[in-house]
Simulated scan of single mutants.
Amino acid sequence: MKILVADDDRTFIEMLRAALLMQGYEVSVASAGDSCLASVSEEKPDLILLDMGLPDIDGITVIRGVRRWSDVPIMVVSGRTETTRIISALDAGADEYVTKPITLDELLARVRALIRRVPHEHGAPLITMGHVTIDLSTHSVFRQYRGRQIRVQLTPTEWKVLQMLVRNVGRLVTRQDLLTEIWGSEHVNDSGNLRLYVSQLRKKIEQDPAKPQFLKTETGMGYRLELQDSANH
């Protein structure tokens, strides 16, 4: 049983991690929203313990991002006690919301209870957009062709670009963020390379690369991946 702890409080993380390991769980840690979303797609945890106050992405946005492709159980563990906040988290897809401070014994009991309540096999991280299916767990892309699913061959860099857009589906991803994440901060101005890879991706996943339905350009800013053709909605 693998548990992902998403929190930026180092003291709390180490205390909770040690307690979970003693209970026999595998534990991975994310200290920011983006790394949490990446860990969900790459490591496929069986449970997420999520703080609402991550430094880069609001907790509600993280929950919604996870729920776009996975039904992994999410327990919010947060110091935010406002009723409206709790309701928003549960409505976004959290399975339980517990507030800090909380004793480790009670938190571990709640973890065990949530694990008992939910199926152990949660949905595979699949993203479908039109004729294309993206499988985050196997780093695979398939498209429909004459009634059959054909695997799309992507280069490692093309996959990294697509994966980052999928992790932020529906949201603007700036050129600077993509360049820094994939090539490093020293390449933050190499937008020509990025345009080339985006163009190659469109040729592989779009019906008409000249009029992309899903991989949209936000002029002067970056790119956005839409699961539906926004022109028709």
Rank of each mutant, 00 (worst) to 15 (best):
M1W: 02
K2F: 01
I3K: 00
A6L: 06
D7M: 05
D8Q: 05
D8M: 11
D8A: 10
D9V: 04
T11P: 08
E14T: 06
A18W: 08
A19T: 07
A19M: 03
L21Q: 09
V29T: 13
S31V: 14
S31I: 11
S35W: 00
C36I: 04
L37A: 00
A38P: 00
S41V: 01
E43A: 02
K44A: 04
I48C: 00
L54W: 01
D56P: 00
D56E: 07
I57C: 00
D58I: 03
G59S: 01
T61P: 00
V62P: 02
G65S: 05
R67M: 08
R68K: 13
R68V: 06
S70I: 06
P73Y: 05
M75V: 12
G79A: 13
R80P: 03
T81S: 15
E82F: 12
T83Y: 05
R85H: 14
I86Q: 13
S88C: 03
A89I: 07
A89G: 09
L90C: 06
A92K: 03
A94G: 15
D95L: 09
E96A: 11
V98M: 05
I102G: 13
T103W: 04
T103G: 15
T103L: 12
L104Q: 08
D105G: 12
E106M: 10
E106F: 12
L108Y: 11
R110Q: 14
R110H: 14
V111Q: 12
V111G: 12
R116D: 15
V118G: 09
H120D: 15
E121Y: 10
A124V: 15
I127S: 13
T128Y: 12
M129R: 14
M129E: 03
V132K: 05
T133R: 15
I134Q: 07
R143I: 04
R143G: 09
R143L: 05
Y145P: 03
G147I: 04
R148N: 10
R148E: 13
I150K: 11
R151W: 02
L154N: 04
P156N: 10
E158D: 11
W159N: 08
K160S: 15
V161D: 08
L162F: 11
L162K: 06
Q163W: 09
M164F: 13
L165D: 01
N168A: 02
R171M: 09
V173K: 08
T174W: 10
R175K: 10
R175S: 13
Q176P: 05
L179D: 04
T180K: 12
E181R: 12
W183I: 09
G184S: 03
G184T: 04
S185K: 13
E186L: 04
E186Y: 10
H187T: 02
N189I: 04
D190W: 11
S191D: 14
G192K: 02
L194K: 02
L196G: 02
Y197K: 11
V198E: 07
L201H: 06
L201E: 07
K204G: 03
I205L: 14
E206D: 08
Q207E: 14
D208P: 02
K211F: 08
Q213Y: 05
L215M: 03
K216P: 01
K216I: 09
K216V: 07
K216L: 14
E218L: 06
M221N: 07
G222F: 04
Y223L: 06
R224N: 05
L227Q: 08
Q228V: 08
D229H: 00
D229A: 01
S230E: 07
A231G: 08
